[in-house]
Structures are given as C-alpha cells and as structure tokens.
Design a protein around this nucleic acid. Sequence first.
DNA 1: GTATATTTGATCAAATATAATCATAAAAAA
DNA 2: TTTTTTATGATTATATTTGATCAAATATAC
Lengths: 250, 250
Amino acid sequence: MSFQNRKQTILRLLEEKEEVEVKEFAQLLNISEITIRRDLIQMAAEGLLHRTHGGAMRLSLVQNPVTFSNKTTTNAEQKDKICRVAAQFIQEGDIIFIDCGSTVFRLCPYIRHKKIKVITNSLPVVYELHGSSVSINLIGGELDVERQAIHGSIAEEHIKRYRANRAFIGVDGISPENGLSALSEKEASITLAMASHSAQVYLLCDATKLGQDKYLQFAGLDIIHTLITDADLKKVKPYQDQRLQVICVE
Amino acid sequence: MSFQNRKQTILRLLEEKEEVEVKEFAQLLNISEITIRRDLIQMAAEGLLHRTHGGAMRLSLVQNPVTFSNKTTTNAEQKDKICRVAAQFIQEGDIIFIDCGSTVFRLCPYIRHKKIKVITNSLPVVYELHGSSVSINLIGGELDVERQAIHGSIAEEHIKRYRANRAFIGVDGISPENGLSALSEKEASITLAMASHSAQVYLLCDATKLGQDKYLQFAGLDIIHTLITDADLKKVKPYQDQRLQVICVE
DNA sequence: GTATATTTGATCAAATATAATCATAAAAAA
DNA sequence: TTTTTTATGATTATATTTGATCAAATATAC
C-alpha cells in the first residue's frame, strides 16, 4: 500500500473515530509503527490531523474557551467607577465610538440595555455587547492579534465615513503640557480618527495616567471635551484651567 | 486516550456541568486521580479552567457561553470533507476571502496552520482562527446579530478595496439553469463582492443544495470557477457541461 | 478549639512513546 | 544493467506520560 493510499485510509479511520493510536493504525494497515509515525508527522504538518502522544486526532472546531476579553486589568474598580459615570452621558439613539482601550472596554456592562449604536474597532467590545440591545458597527481593517482590535489605514478611512455624537476614548498618558500620549502608533491614530469624527469626546482615564507622558505624543488636550477620572480635584486643576470639562468620580 | 484528547474531554465535561470533581473525572476517563490532577493543574495554568479544591470549575466567561461559532449544522461530516479538500488548494502566502456560510466556516480547522491572510466578514471565522498562524482582515460595516457577520454597503465597498487570490464562498442554492441563489440579500451581495474581487472562486456546497433554487437568484454560474461538493458524478454533470471545474470529494 | 478525613505536592519508578541512527528493500533514473 | 533515490523496518537511546507512595496542607466534622 502506497503512502497516498495510507494517507486516505488514515483519514477515513479518523472520520470513524475521533482518536486512533499508532498501534491501531499499524495493525489495521499492516505496517510498522515507525512508518505510521512518519506518516502522522507529515500529515500533521500538512494540517490534515492533530498529532497526539501515542496517536492522532481528527481536527475539530476549537473547543478552548477563547479569551478575547481583556477582563484582567489594573485598577479595575476605579475604571468601573469611571465607566458607570461615563455611561450616564449616553442617551437613547446616540451613535457612539468606543476605541480599544482597557478602560473604555469596561463601559460595556453599563450600556448593554441602551438603545444606541456603538461603532468600535475592538473585538472584546463586540463580544461583550453580544446579545445586548446595542446595535454594532465594526470598523474594518487589519486585525491586531495582540490587542484584538482593528487597525491600519483602511480602518482610519472607515472611521472617517461615520460621524458620531460621542466618542469614548482611552490613552496611555495625559499631561497639561504635552497633551495625549500613547504606546502604540496604530492605536493612537484610531483614537485620533474617532475623536475628530464625533461631536463630543470623552476621555476615560484613571488617576495613574494623569501627568504621565508616553513616548508618542499624538494630540493636544483640545481634541477632547470631557475628562472623566478618579483623580482628586487638586490633580485635575491644570486640566480645568485649559478649559477642559473635568468629571471626578466619587 | 492521549493527554490532548483528555484535555478536550475535560473541557467538554465542564461545559455540561459547572464543577466536576477529580474523582468524577478519574472515573469517567478511566484514569488515575493523580493524572487528572496533573491535567487540571496544567490546564488551569493555561487559563482553560478554574482549579478548585477537589476538582475544577469552568471559567465564568464560558458560563454564559457566547456561541459565536455555528458548530451545530446539518451535514457536518460532508461539509468537513468538502473543506478538507478545499483547503488543499490554498498555498502559503495566499490572500483568501471567506464569507459567512456555514460550510466555508468549517474550513477554519484546516487552515489554522497556514501562513496566509484571510479576509472575512464572519465573526465565527475570526473566532475559530484565533491564535492560529493566519493573519486576519475583518470587513467593516454593520453587524448582523443573527448571522454574526458584517453586512451593508460600507462592507461591500470595503471588500472592493481588496483583491484576493481565492475566494471560498457558500450559497443556499445552485442550479444549472438559474445559477446561484440565496435566502438573504445582504449575504448574497457580500458573496458577490468577494467573488468579483478574487482571481479564483471556489463554491463549497453540499449535495443537498445542488439543484435547489432559492428565492433570490443573485448570480450566474460564471462567477465561480470551481465547485467542490460531495454530490456524485451524475449529479454534477450539468455543471461540468457549463465549463465549471467540479471536484467531487470521495 | 481539636480530631479526622480529604486533597494535594513531591519524589520516584515503571511503562510507554518518540527521536536518532543505521540497515535493508523497493523503486526510479542513469 | 548499475547507480541513485526513496521508503520502510530494526535497534537503541532519550523523552514523556503515568501511577504509587507518603508527608504536608486543607477542608470538614465534632
């Protein structure tokens, strides 16, 4: 029996049984175990089956719970407080942008019941709003695996096709002197595009980021209208002085 | 039963029951408790489950299982065979379109290991390819909640910005007389857009759809190049007569 | 609170699977 | 034909998986 024939038989056997051992293959095909092993290695490389210790399994749809949501985050409590307040600004019928920040992501639980349209480039946001009364538009473009968000020039173009009432955005750093800064150029340009295409821009930002300058300074404070933060009044004074509306939660 | 298989079984058992004891696992899988414990420790480290004293719990995220994947489908076996064959046409470096059909969705397990770019409007496809070596572009636009796919005019425009080597598409009906037909206008226009922007178009179609005409006839047979199906040779003859390349699996 | 029962972690030993190497047989090419 | 290539098998060394034992940690009963 040739390798080609064997290959077909191996696949057929795997159709009948989810997992087959090397020994079983060897017996059924009347051939040595080492040869079967060699076949399986090659077929696994071709993506025809899944190699296991002692045999092979047929390929199946993923059964691992895929963890899209960046649920684990620092300052979760503060961020939740910020988001609860931020959600109060949203009115029925609003069209809102949400970017892919870890803070704005936590807005989702507070807007699930609202009859609004959310435009986002963040897959975790989409998954978190699944089954809610929110209608969703997804920004298209290249998927950044690490951030589970859409980025790139096409994405920016796409954002510019829309105009929203409100944008809820996040940054990695903000300071009265240097404005908004980020750690990712891709993320920054998405944030910028969303901000420039909505009537009201809310920056959701926990206290640890206030006064921080990250390497990429991508916009002045003037692109945002409202800063929602858990910082104390003293710390936000410089921002208010620059005619920024500041909401301190708590 | 290999470790890999056991791991999947453990996850399946946890899907049925929120918490399972080590003893139960050991009995059900017919293996010693110490081995189960080792499995659980490893899986907890991978973040696949939550370890408890005396057993394991499923993660809360999976508790309300967001079923993005349309795993349940009719003719699953046939569709898998079709997809396995279809995957063999894909070469390293290819740019491929995948639409939101239930058949083409099952292409995912067979292309996870390939170094290609997939452009899709289907969230289940994105979900299934998560963590694979495939790079993904997502089509942007309105999210259709029911189909978990992106539709609408912006989506079509977006598709037309790309050009792919191959498109793998599905339909609801096909006949030699009336060509391709569908049950959803939105879906049909996405399919059409993808087909018109790729060099080679593959229609993946199980036998039950051959000879069927659905209410919306949206394209002739000429927009596709290759029909991959599990139907027998007699049944596909009329399609071959129309200069369509037909691949019959098995 | 203590006592008892379970569960766990650590260590080791046995069983098993795999990788590496070489030898042989079959097929293809010269 | 001979040579070369390829596929297969045997052997040994290495790696992996599994189970057993027992002390420590944890939960439960009293």
